[in-house]
Design a protein around this nucleic acid. Structure first.
Lengths: 257, 257
DNA sequence: TCAAATGTCTCTATAATAGAACCGTAATTG
DNA sequence: CAATTACGGTTCTATTATAGAGACATTTGA
């Protein structure tokens, strides 16, 4: 059983996004179809604790500095920048496309580390970005290696179509995942964004459970030809192997182990 | 009026620190002197929403990936890395000590950006670190330029002594702050940590209210001599002036403006 | 100049929470 | 190896905090 008040409050917090970073009390109440009194109390409480701040003139609320602290703590705990990021940077340089690490978190994949391509046109994504597991190479790579019951949970959780290419039919998805699992990698075009391609490979914990994926992505006009794809997969798998070795060696304990 | 349930829950969250990143239900309940049922419900609710995760074997809780997202959003909003960080890096190189930017947040100063010294022995601090405003050069610099009633609030909020050098007597503090305000900078030794010196200067918003400070810090054995100090202050003030110009120019809107 | 929208506050029926007691399991210890 | 302690999780009900409508003073904008 969960606390309803806290649950609602966290739901409110989720409306503070990159697209909508500031909210007025009644504005947010209208958006959520909730009484403005309730929203007011929630926002005021978050503000009291430094999780939100209120602009003294506009009276609107936005995320507070408290999140810097917590975000940094999570980052420190993941401890990817010392060993994993350099590997990713090398990869990005070799392939000349952006490389990113996606972590499994419930029914989402979360971008936890990025090495951007040096090209002027490149795939770009923020740390902390959250994507449903049925969308795109980085996420489907993870989903493919999950137990069947987890796959079902994720599909039951709802498969939103965000581009025409997004797969939303359960049967089609299962067939696709099966193929990914067998070949050990995933290649997609236009699923996450209509102008992006991606190639992903999985990463596992010591119990051989999938916990993350390593993915390269770039603009669709640079997508690999059928002959070039195996080579790209090879390079990516080599990088993943190095990261995997680090996970194994240091008995990478954080999350799902 | 604030929501008690949410308030308590956020208080619980604050126990997840760098020093104590993982907590079991009863362990945390004991620490907080609260029934373990209550703690359990709070932790379970946070976990449900991805703000905490539970280790499947030890059953202990730690911060979840959701904070990566929020932390990054706050960082993006501050938008310091493009213009301010390079200035800080230049400063750090010129002075050969670490330089950091501290933001006013309630009764605390929060480290929001860092340029580390290239020396092997250097002052090091994490982004998001929160320090009471009465401690150290970076914080006292801010406090000195706050209105008197805010100073009183901060002192009433409690002045913990964390080193022998920490000033905790209100009268002594006020005299110290007055001096800082008049000279426009602050030099401290051993207040934050017994082995650290710091020199700080204030930064203001468009209404001339203090919102942050720029500080250099290093090991106490490299602290500037009385003759060298003015030069160091000069270099620091020059950097601060550049940052200030950026704040003014781009009508730096985030927080306290 | 008037009307609509805003953040904040007050009130009370109602619904959610606190906290003790309990459960089965896992770890610890004599 | 048996007994004890500690653990996360659950159930129960008296108590308490919350939901939600409404009012208020300001501000905004037509």
């Amino acid at each position: 059983m969960t606390l309803k008040t806290l649950d609602n409050s966290l739901e409110v917090l989720k409306y503070f996004s990159k697209e909508n970073p500031t909210w007025g009390v009644r504005e947010l109440a209208k958006e959520m179809n909730i009484s403005h009194s309730i929203i007011y109390r929630i926002l005021a409480t978050f503000e009291n604790q430094g999780f939100l701040i209120q602009h003294p003139e506009t009276k609107k609320y936005e995320l507070g500095l408290r999140f810097l602290e917590y975000g940094q703590m999570v980052k420190d705990k993941l401890n990817l920048s010392d060993f994993v990021l350099p590997i990713m940077k090398n990869l990005a340089e070799a392939i000349k496309e952006s490389v990113f690490l996606t972590w499994l978190d419930g029914t989402d994949g979360v971008t936890v580390e990025i090495a951007e391509s040096s090209q002027t046109i490149k795939f770009s994504v923020s740390i902390g970005t959250r994507t449903p597991l049925h969308i795109g190479a980085s996420c489907k790579t993870i989903m493919a290696f999950l137990p069947d019951e987890r796959k079902k949970e994720i599909m039951d959780h709802g498969m939103k179509k965000i581009t025409p290419e997004t797969i939303t039919e359960p049967d089609k998805m299962l067939a696709d995942l099966e193929k990914i699992k067998q070949q050990g990698w995933c290649f997609t075009t236009g699923e996450y964004s209509h102008s992006v391609f991606g190639v992903g490979v999985p990463l596992f914990n010591s119990k051989k459970e999938v916990i993350a994926s390593l993915t390269i992505a770039g603009p669709i006009y640079r997508k690999p030809t059928e002959e070039k794809l195996p080579e790209m997969v090879n390079v990516l798998q080599y990088g993943a192997m190095n990261i995997q070795r680090y996970f194994d060696q240091y008995s990478f304990k954080l999350y799902h182990e």
